[in-house]
Amino acid sequence: MTAEKPILYALSTCSHCKSTKKLLTDCDVEYDYVQVDDLEGEERKAILADIKSLNPRCSFPTIKINKTVIVGYKEKEIKEALGIKNES
């Protein structure tokens, strides 16, 4: 399973982000969640810098699972990174 807690950077209004959150919940995965559109000022700048270090496009959702960074709602890749078997 995962060593580090996954962290999901997302937007409150984004449907791809909502699908990613639902997938993590359905898989009973505990994760840290950062709703970036709620942030302002220095905190926002710092978080954007963090995201850009992981995903230079700074798009959403961006999720970090251990050393793996996945951009977009990609169910298969997310499950693999979580060590969850994909039903093919």
Binding site: K52, R57, C58, S59, V71, G72
Partner: peptide
């Protein structure tokens, strides 16, 4: 299919 982000990152604040 998945659509990658086309917007240039320098436009994101």
């Amino acid at each position: 299919q998945y659509v990658p982000e086309r917007r240039p990152p320098e436009k994101i604040f």
